[in-house]
């Protein structure tokens, strides 16, 4: 992955402005590059905010639902590494209960199971 892109993602992950999440979603999780998608998903998880966690949990083809197993597994590992898991559990519960897509629900359920076991 391009070094400058990684630095931009890091800077946006550390940015206090909430619009940084939109940029990470727009340019990071939609990138054709697997490494960029993986790095962005981990950055969004590290932010540990409602909006950033939503991006990697409830969206089809992004974060834990990415078609690339490497991206999905990296995002799950980052979620498991969070110290404060309260927000992510809340979103996972909402996704399991309310999301329209069954695949997304299934993935959320699996992650929640992993969290319970960790």
């Amino acid at each position: 992955m391009n070094k400058n892109v990684a630095e931009i993602i890091d800077a946006l992950a550390a940015h206090e402005d909430h619009t940084s999440i939109d940029v990470l979603e727009e340019l990071g999780t939609n990138s054709p590059d697997n490494e960029v998608r993986e790095y962005t998903s981990r950055a969004l998880v590290r932010k540990n905010m409602h909006d950033s966690l939503k991006v990697v949990i409830i969206n089809q083809g992004k974060g834990i639902n990415d078609l690339s197993p490497a991206v999905a597994m990296s995002t799950i590992n980052e979620i498991l590494a969070l110290k404060d898991k309260s927000e992510v559990i809340k979103i996972l519960d909402d996704t399991i209960n309310m999301h329209s897509d069954e695949t997304v629900k299934e993935n959320a359920r699996s992650v929640k199971s992993l969290l319970a076991l960790s």
Binding site: V5, H15, D17, V23, L27
Partner: peptide, 16 residues
């Protein structure tokens, strides 16, 4: 460091 989100976005687009 210290740029606005829009500036980072522009930089990212240029890098792409």
């Amino acid at each position: 460091s210290g740029l606005s989100v829009a500036e980072y976005r522009d930089l990212w687009i240029k890098e792409n």
